[in-house]
Each structure stands twice: as C-alpha cells, then as structure tokens.
Design a protein around this nucleic acid. Sequence first.
DNA 1: GGCGATCCACAAGCAAAGGTTGTGGGAGGT
DNA 2: ACCTCCCACAACCTTTGCTTGTGGATCGCC
Lengths: 306, 306
Amino acid sequence: MTEPSVEELRMLLAVQARGSLTAAAEELGVTQQAVSQRMRALERRLGLALFARAARGTTLTAHGRLVADWAQGVVDQLDALSAAAASLRADRQAQLRVAASMTIAEHLMPVWMVSTGAHAIDARVQLTAVNSAGAIDAVRIGQVELGFIETPDVPRRLASRTIAVDEVVIVVAPGHPWAKRRRLPLATLARTPLVMREAGSGTRATVEAALARADLSLAPPAADVSTTAAIRALVLSGGGAAAISALAARDDLATGRLRRVHVDAPPFERPLTAIWDGERVLAEPARDFLAVAQRMGLGSGTGTAP
Amino acid sequence: MTEPSVEELRMLLAVQARGSLTAAAEELGVTQQAVSQRMRALERRLGLALFARAARGTTLTAHGRLVADWAQGVVDQLDALSAAAASLRADRQAQLRVAASMTIAEHLMPVWMVSTGAHAIDARVQLTAVNSAGAIDAVRIGQVELGFIETPDVPRRLASRTIAVDEVVIVVAPGHPWAKRRRLPLATLARTPLVMREAGSGTRATVEAALARADLSLAPPAADVSTTAAIRALVLSGGGAAAISALAARDDLATGRLRRVHVDAPPFERPLTAIWDGERVLAEPARDFLAVAQRMGLGSGTGTAP
DNA sequence: GGCGATCCACAAGCAAAGGTTGTGGGAGGT
DNA sequence: ACCTCCCACAACCTTTGCTTGTGGATCGCC
C-alpha cells in the first residue's frame, strides 16, 4: 500500500478548513473535480471514510478529523523544513545574516523561521551553519549580524544574551540494561565509553566539565560520529549509550525509540547564547529575530528557560 | 517554488544511510539514474548543495545533514500517520481491538502504533475512536479487549491501570494580553468565557472540577468546537483563550503558535486510564500493547508520568 | 602507467499520475 | 416546481518520473 502524499494531506486540511470540496479547490487553485478525485483516492488508499458528503458541503467524519490532525503534524514539519532550508540558501540578498552552531541550526532555527514567517518580521534570514568558534569568527569579522553559540565562554568585545539552557542527556536503546535503571551513578557513567559527536561539537566538553566537577574523568568515547542518524543507528543496534543534546534526543524520546538514562548528578547543562558585535547598534531585523529567539527559547519541550 | 516531496526526502535519507546514490537506489528498488536525477532536482529546488559526490560514493554536505535531519522529522510524522490510520481501518481481522477516547486516539496512538510496529509485537491493532463512555461500553460488551479513557471515574467490574496523567492547559495567541502574564488568578479564568471542545469530551469537566474545588464556577464557554483545527483558528484569530489537553497543545506551544497561560492554581489534571474486562484474563497481544502504552506514557513532552 | 571496477551524469523513450473541460445527478431553500 | 449549490463520472491531455543505454571521471591495483 502506497502512502498518502503531502499534497493529499494539504487538500484534506483545506477541505476541513473550508467545509467543502469546491471551496478547498478554490483555495488550492485547482478545479473541484481534481479535489474530488484525489480525496476519493486518499480514502481508498487509507481504507477509511474520511468525508461526510452532503448537498450543503463536505465535513470530516471522526476518522477524518483524526487523520487531519495527524496530517497537520506532517505539514507543519515540512513547512519548518522548507522555511529553514530557505534560510540556508545564500543566493538571495538577505536582510539579516545569522551564523548558528549545528545544534541550534538543526533544532531551533526551523521553529524560529516558521515563527518569523508567521509573524511577518520583514527580514529574509540567511543562515550559516557552523560550529561555535565559527559563529564567533563570523560575528567578529562582520560576516553576520547575529551568531548563536552553545559554549559557555562568552568572547570579549561581543555582546551576548543567553537564549536558553540546553542539556546534554544520556540515551540508550529500550533494550539496554540502563533503560530500566532509575538513577545511574555518575562514576558508572564516567567509566563507560559513550557514543558522541566529534570533539569540536561542545557535547563532550559539557560532559567532561560535569565529570570534572566530581573529580572524575571521561572514558575514551566508544565512537566519534558526525551525524545524528549515525548516532541513532549505533545506539539502536545495541551500540551502548550516547551523550547528545536534549534537543536532538527529543523526538526519539517522545516516540520511544530511545530511552533517557537519569544520571545521579546535576544536569549537564550549557547555555545557548546569542552574540553580536557590541560596538555596533543592532539593526531592526536582528533585534526582531533576537526577540523571537528569546521568546521561544527551546519551545515547550525539554530544558529550562533562562 | 514547489516544496520537496516525501519521496525525495526518503531518498535523501537513504543516500545518507548507505553512502552512495547507487546503494540508495538499490535499497529503494529503483535505478541509480532515478536517484541521481531526483536528488539533483531536489538540490535545484532547495537551492542548496546537499551532496558531496565522489568516485568512492556520495556523502552529505553540512547542509545536506541538516536537511536530512529535518527530513527525518517529516517522515517520522508521516509514518506515524500511516501506522495510526492503518489501525483505524477495520477491514482486516485484528488480533487486538482497542477503543480509545479521542484525545488518546489522536495524540498517543500514533506513537504507540509506530512503537509496536518497530518492536514487532505480533498483533495487528484495530483502533476505534470514541469518547470515554463509548470506550467503557465497548469493553463491557466485549467488542474490544482494551479501552483507554480520560475520565477519573473507573467503572466497576472493569480492571484498570493508569497510564499517565494528562493536563488541561489554558492557551492564547501570542498577541493576547494573557500571553505576557506570569500567573493568572483562578477567579479571572473562571469569569472568562473559554473556547473548548464540546461538553462530552471531558475537558470541560476537568476544568469545572478544578474550579469547584476553589468554590468557583465556570463561565459559559465562548464556543463549543469539535475539531482541534477550529480551536486553533479561533484562538489565533484573537478568539480569546482556550482550554485544551496539553497533548493537543504540545506542538503549537513548541512552535510558538500558541502561548500557555499559567493559572495560579494546582494543574488541571486527569488520569489517562487503560481498562479491560477484569473477569477475563488479558491475552498476549493486549498485555504487550498495554506494556508499550505504560512504558511510553505521554512520551517525553508534557505531563507527568504516574 | 595502463586496466578494471565503481560511481555518477546525460539523453531519449515510455508509462502513469494528476489535472482540465464537459456534463449529469441529487439535496435544500424559495 | 424551480433554481442553486455541490459533488461525481468520463474523456482527453500534460507533466512527472522511471527505465534503458551510454559516456566520463576517479580510485586502487598490479
């Protein structure tokens, strides 16, 4: 059975919003017949009666409303991808250039971009994904107006504001022995090789700093990997425990693919900080964007607002 | 500019996982040329260089990895939709029939379905979405083996187990005056008409019960609406404040479309409870499914584990 | 340095999915 | 009973995406 396409999901949502196939067709800029055809095909594919068709219009059945709500999640994700990808594209003269560390670019920028789009901040944002050091440099040389870093050391000469506090969490596959433990001693963690991102990424530094505060040092990592997908694959295939950003783990924890291990120690926290050139006045688009970032922080999920 | 299709995103993920266009093509059951063509089209559409093509294979650029991680979110959502929709389809003799209240069916079943799929519980689940009373009846008459309800009254004769605690939250649009307030007095809430789901849905009962404990009663609702989309539309268009499940609000809070208002009172909580016929022994698939539900609870996001 | 293997890209042909125009039928409101 | 609005059926057509066939580049190995 083939899966529903995003166009079909968008059509479904349009029908729900407008209350008839004809109105939905108008909204989407196609003919009524096209909508009728496609929605019928969607029902056939899913094997569900989604629509209650009547002379006054078409409403959704209970099943239809369920599917529509799930569809909303899909299109929201896709819209976030589109918005974020657009901000990565450099072929357009942007009114605001931003350099963000990987974690922030990956997990927060999509949300921020959708938000700026929705609230019509009059700025086209151009995003560059770098590491924290790169973001600092980019701000220093004036290549970007705004930077976002995930290391605690706030460089001199640059103005900064902490946006949120990220947490590095320990995750394992559901079958892993640690998955059942309520609290893992810090010493046990210290002597266990972990899967984590490459050295530069700040994740390791955060864990090492936390261990150092308890006079412990970190075992050599089990693996240095450079992509979230690789970490996921490793951990899921029984590759042991991984230390990753709570932001990166969030979806996998929500869907049960990964389990969080609570370590018997203070949280491994690190600030997410916005930086800019303190000797210049921040332009309008930058100020607006900073406000959005500050307001939304990590979103509702994990972590702690400042 | 047209948006990327899910097929393209799946292809991108396959290339990332396998390390070459050729290998990805094999995995997807198409020719290498098809992948090459489509990925080139994807790059053109997004205006980004996603791939580093070499004689040894193709890896993703930094941009490519970012887009791939975002793409993972999209396909995960779509897979959840597919799995949940499959469980709604009744045309297949299911080994486990479940009746769930709307909130649970809408927000938790997709996650649970994906999880049972992944962990290969050998049960095809057939889901019926009803209200809490309907779920109780369905279990009583033996129409389903397992029910999930969101009301505190645990009926006699039925065995039950609390899966998680859901919370009803008050949300407003970002521009609403309440959005800025740190704590809203309960009395203010009580005399403000709220947007909420229709009477049967349990949401109103939960709020009313909480107010009753403070000797307050609820103002007549501003509107009774039956779909999440309608609530969202109302609130966003300045329609005031809404009372909805934290599960339903979660994504909108995360993306900043809605803002939560913290009420100066204990949380409006209600248990999410699994029920089954206490006089029968629970069959294997039902026990397994119950274990999944119990283990995952609300996922990582909102609410409190039992 | 030549040779084979591997991987990716270009080009032409083809099948299918999706959209359009044209038309018919049913249910409400007047 | 009529008009209006909305949805479905049918034939045609355009576009999209896949296939087969082929060429060119890079790496590893003798």
